[in-house]
Each structure stands twice: as structure tokens, then as C-alpha cells.
Design a protein around this nucleic acid. Structure first.
Length: 347
DNA sequence: CTAGGGTTAG
């Protein structure tokens, strides 16, 4: 949540204030500006993420008799969806049909997105089927939205079927779509299927990108953590393969490795990765350092952990709430241990 | 002219 009084918030406030001022001028004008002009303003306000303001403006437009069209009403639907009130979005759709404004593929995609955000995937899927039946052409990203919803709710099987269906309908999935499914398969522990899809991506002229690789590396490491020791080397090997393909690992890729070593209690190996990374000119971030700080604390090396926090500051990476929580937690636990020791020594 | 929308690490 935004903090009241933060500078960027005031900045934002000024801008919404401006759009509301402009809006008031527009509705007072005698020949009213066209709906296109209003929609431009609505769009600008949406970009500032002030959805409630847009809802207000739309109702005022109704009040003064500015006629809505498919564009302005789609904006309104989007605002309800963003506010988590997809059902109101559907009422707007009903109103659209009632007043004879033809919804477009964008209108339906907006509602589908809203449903997916609320994890109502089956409703999203039937709306999707409905729009196709009525002859509206969904875009690649409409497919992607549904697919993402299926993956997020853990419906991996259906996600794979959906991927095949979109291919059958002549949509060429892009790397983002493949990454979504590959990650989903990885998270379900279906590494073999993920790797199969991965080689399929290579065969088609879609090049795997850094995200594709990071998903696979993360999956290999998870398997290592849960059942098969020694797979970290395979993960490192995958990084080499990545490099050969001209993809340089980034902080995220390395964080996966650092996390893996830390979970095994191999903090020095983890620290080593951070150092090597820096030598390559890749800046670690708070996330990565927090993992390292946590691992040191868990080993009882609290002062070493604090040294790392100092190093962070020297590299002008500011520790965040998570960093301080880790340290505070470590100090508490340490305190408990010394208390226990005291207690046992007095007995 | 003006609208919607997707991926990784804690």
C-alpha cells in the first residue's frame, strides 16, 4: 500500500487533481467535447492507476448526458476489473448491450482478464469460448491471459491442452507463453515434460530466453533440495549451456543458485557466487543479499551477517524491512539461547 | 483519433 505523505504519492495526487480539474471544465463547456476527448482523459487517468476516479468521471458523464461508446465503456469495465469488482464490469457489459453499443474483442478480453485476476478461471474460459463462438477474434495475449490463469491455479494438464489448442487454431505461441507453461510444469515437479517443451521451443524458431533458463535451473535445484543431491552441478552446467547460447545469467539466475547453496548450509559457496558475480560486473540486489544474510544467521554467524549488511551499504544497496527482520530475529534467538544457558548454569 | 492483456528468484 502506498504510504501517505510519500513524495511520489503527492506527485500522483497532483496529477489526478489535474485530470479531475480538466474533467470538470470539460463537462461545463457548452458544446461538450466529443467522447473521444473524454476517452483520452479517462485513459490518462487509468495510466495513473486512479480507477475510482475514472468510475466517478464515467458516472458524471452519464449525468450530464455525454453519450458513451464502446471505447469509454471498455475503459470503465477495466476500472471495475482492476478494483476487483468484475461483477460490476459485467453490469456495464449488460448496459452496453441494452443501449445498443456493440462490445468489441477488447471489451471481452478486459473482462476475461478481470476474471483471471479473481482466479475465476472456468468463468473466464467460458467467456472466452463464448466470444469465439460469436465470431470475435481473441488476440495472442487473450490466450496468454487464460493460460496464465490455468497455470496459476495449478491446472497444468488443462494448460498444456490449451497450449495445443491455440497452436491448432493457428496461433503461434511466443516465448512468454512457453515460459508460462514451462514454469508451471517445473513447479508441479514435471521436469521431464518441462524439458520436452523446452526442446520443442528450440526446434520452433522461438529462442529460449533468460527467463526460460531461470525456470529450468530453479526446477533442477528444487529436485536437488527434495530428493536428489548433487543436481546443483547440473544447474551450474545449465548456466554454461545458457552462456554458450549467448545468454548471460542475471541476478535472478544467480539468486536461484545462491538460495540452493544456502538451503544446504553451504554459505561459503553461496558467498563465492556473489563475489564472482560482482567480478563479472553484475550487481547483486537486496533479495540476493537477504538470502545470504539469513543463511549466515541460521548458522549462528550473526556478526558475519552484520558484516554483509555493511558491505551492502557500501555498495549502496539499502537493506530493507526483510533484512532488518532477519537480523532482529537472529538477535532474539541468540538472546534466548544465552538466557537458556544462564538458566541452566544457575540450576 | 480513443480502449484491454501475459513470464522468473525472497
Amino acid at each position: 500500500m502506498p504510504v501517505k505523505g510519500s513524495p511520489e504519492n503527492y506527485d500522483r495526487f497532483d496529477k489526478v487533481d489535474e485530470s479531475l480539474n480538466l474533467f470538470n471544465k470539460m463537462i461545463q463547456k457548452c458544446p461538450k467535447p466529443s467522447i473521444v476527448e473524454f476517452t483520452k482523459l479517462l485513459g490518462a487517468t487509468v495510466r495513473m492507476k486512479h480507477y475510482a476516479a475514472v468510475v466517478y468521471m464515467c458516472s458524471q458523464m452519464d449525468f450530464v448526458g455525454v453519450p458513451h461508446d464502446a471505447y469509454s465503456l471498455s475503459v470503465l469495465i477495466n476500472c471495475f476489473c482492476q478494483l476487483g469488482q468484475t461483477d460490476f464490469g459485467f453490469s456495464v457489459l449488460g448496459k452496453m448491450i441494452k443501449i445498443g453499443v456493440e462490445p468489441s474483442a477488447v471489451t471481452f478480453s478486459t473482462l476475461i482478464n478481470g476474471l483471471c485476476k479473481q482466479r475465476k478461471i472456468s468463468q473466464a474460459a467460458s467467456l472466452f469460448d463464448g466470444m469465439v463462438e460469436k465470431g470475435y477474434q481473441p488476440h495472442l495475449i487473450t490466450y496468454s491471459t487464460i493460460l496464465n490463469g490455468l497455470c496459476k491455479t495449478g491446472d497444468t494438464r488443462r494448460a498444456v491442452r490449451f497450449l495445443r489448442m491455440m497452436e491448432a487454431r493457428g496461433f503461434k505461441p511466443d516465448i512468454v507463453v512457453y515460459n508460462t507453461v514451462i514454469d508451471c510444469l517445473c513447479k508441479c515437479g514435471l521436469l521431464k515434460e518441462a524439458l520436452d517443451l523446452f526442446s520443442e521451443v528450440k526446434v520452433k524458431d522461438n529462442r529460449p530466453n533468460i527467463i526460460t533458463f531461470s525456470c529450468l535451473i530453479h526446477a533442477i535445484i528444487l529436485i536437488d533440495a527434495f530428493c536428489k543431491d548433487g543436481l546443483i552441478f547440473q544447474a551450474v552446467d545449465t548456466i554454461h549451456t545458457m552462456r554458450k547460447q549467448g545468454l548471460e545469467p542475471n541476478v535472478v539466475t544467480y539468486t536461484t543458485l545462491v538460495d540452493a547453496y544456502c538451503k544446504k548450509g553451504m554459505v561459503f559457496e553461496a558467498k563465492d557466487i556473489v563475489d564472482k558475480m560482482r567480478k563479472q560486473g553484475i550487481q547483486p540486489d537486496v533479495v540476493m543479499y537477504n538470502i545470504l544474510v539469513d543463511a549466515y544467521c541460521k548458522k549462528g554467524m550473526v556478526s558475519e551477517a552484520e558484516d554483509i549488511v555493511d558491505t551492502m551499504r557500501k555498495q549502496s544497496i539499502e537493506p530493507n524491512v526483510v533484512t532488518y527482520s532477519i537480523l532482529a530475529d537472529a538477535h532474539c534467538k541468540k538472546g534466548m539461547i544465552s538466557l537458556k544457558l544462564k538458566a541452566s548454569s544457575t540450576q
